[in-house]
Computed example of a mutant assay.
Amino acid sequence: MQDARAPAASVTAALHDVAGLGGFFDLRAGGPDDGWHPVARSYATGFTDLAAAVARLHRTTEPRVDVSIAQLGHAARLWSPVLACAVLHGIVLDLEGLQRADDGPALRLPRPAGRYADRLDAGPARALYEQVTGHLSALADGLRVKVAPRLLDGNSASALAGAAHALLALRPAVRGPLTALTTELLGTGRLAG
Rank of each mutant, 00 (worst) to 15 (best):
E62V: 13
D94Y: 03
D49Y: 02
A75Q: 10
P81M: 12
A86M: 08
A55E: 03
T45A: 14
A75W: 04
W79V: 11
T60D: 14
E62L: 10
P81Q: 09
R56C: 09
V65L: 07
A86E: 05
D94L: 14
L72D: 07
A84S: 11
C85G: 03
P81Y: 04
I69L: 13
L78K: 14
R64K: 12
R56D: 11
V67Q: 05
S80R: 14
L93A: 12
R77Q: 08
P81F: 13
V65G: 05
T61A: 10
V82S: 15
D49C: 05
F47L: 15
R56W: 04
C85T: 11
S68M: 10
F47S: 11
A86C: 08
R77L: 13
A52T: 06
W79A: 03
V54H: 02
R59E: 10
A84R: 08
S68P: 00
R64Y: 05
F47H: 06
P63S: 01
H74W: 05
T61N: 12
H89F: 05
V82N: 05
L93P: 08
S80A: 15
S80C: 08
L72C: 07
A53S: 06
R56I: 10
V82E: 12
V87Y: 06
L93R: 15
V54D: 04
G46S: 11
A76V: 10
Q71Y: 08
T45V: 15
A70R: 11
D66K: 02
H58P: 00
A84C: 12
P63H: 01
A70I: 10
G46K: 03
A75V: 14
I69D: 10
S80I: 12
T60F: 11
H58F: 03
A51Q: 02
G46N: 05
H58T: 04
G73K: 01
A84G: 08
H89E: 03
E62W: 04
E96L: 13
R77V: 03
L93N: 05
T48V: 15
H74R: 15
A84H: 10
A53P: 00
T61P: 07
R59Y: 09
R64S: 13
E62S: 07
V82L: 14
P63R: 00
D66R: 02
V65M: 07
F47G: 13
L72N: 06
V54R: 07
R59Q: 14
V65N: 04
R64V: 09
G46P: 02
R59L: 11
Q71A: 15
R56K: 11
A55H: 00
V54M: 13
A52E: 04
A52Y: 00
T61D: 13
I91G: 01
T48G: 01
T61S: 14
A55P: 00
T45M: 09
A86N: 05
V82D: 07
V67M: 06
P63V: 02
I91R: 03
G73Y: 00
V67L: 15
I91W: 02
T60H: 14
R77S: 03
Q71R: 14
D94G: 13
T48A: 15
V92S: 12
L72H: 12
A86L: 06
A86T: 04
V54Q: 11
A70D: 04
V65R: 07
E62C: 08
L95I: 07
R64L: 07
P81K: 10
G90V: 00
L57S: 08
A52N: 01
